[in-house]
Amino acid sequence: MKILLVEDDRLLANEIATSLRDENFAVDIAFDGEDAEHLGNTELYDAAILDLGLPKVPGAVVLRVWRENGRQLPVLILTARDGWSEKVEGFKAGADDYLTKPFRVEELVMRLRALVRRSAGHAVTKIVCGPLSFNVQIGVFELNGLPLKLTALEWRVLECLILTKNTVIDRSVLSEKVYEGDAGTDSNSLEVIVARLRRKIGKDMIATERGRGYKLSAGGT
């Protein structure tokens, strides 16, 4: 799961990013409105955390530009001014949720997962695919009812696959959502991760569609 974090306070941005990475998120950071606008328009993210008080371009404007460009990613706005007028403005620009500073990371993570799950079209918090189940709210995979131990990258790949279960996810999309912007995207390593996942959950569940990408399904077709 890849998140765009837009926050001008570097200290806070880095703290949030660290905490989110601990929860298996891939995080790109933009420190001002211009960067945020550019990244949101060009990169693929599962969700964005957007501070409204940004230098160069205000957060609400950034959000409006994204929406005008057809970017549908769920957006959680952060505000320091817990005024309702600002929240209303943010939601009118296209926000999906908000948090007032300061907040608990657990709360942020929970909200982000709920946003991503809903935007992937899942109404319930537990996504099941054969023996594999994923509790989106707490971010835990279970295989046959037992917790599944995964590395961060494995977790991200499997999360992308299970959120789009039974449909083919493009390799490039998958790698975009798994690797952070500054990390080198090595398609070989994606192969390696998928291979490791097949060993953990059974090789039939992840199918490779030649020239296209991967698909997670219950049986193996």
């Binding site: 306070d9 200290l11 806070l12 007032t100 907040f103």
Partner: peptide, 18 residues
């Protein structure tokens, strides 16, 4: 007041997470 809010809460948010 808004600036004060922003000025106080951002470091506090950092602290809370750190």
């Amino acid at each position: 007041v808004a600036n004060l809010a922003h000025g106080l809460k951002t470091p506090l948010a950092t602290l809370a997470i750190a």
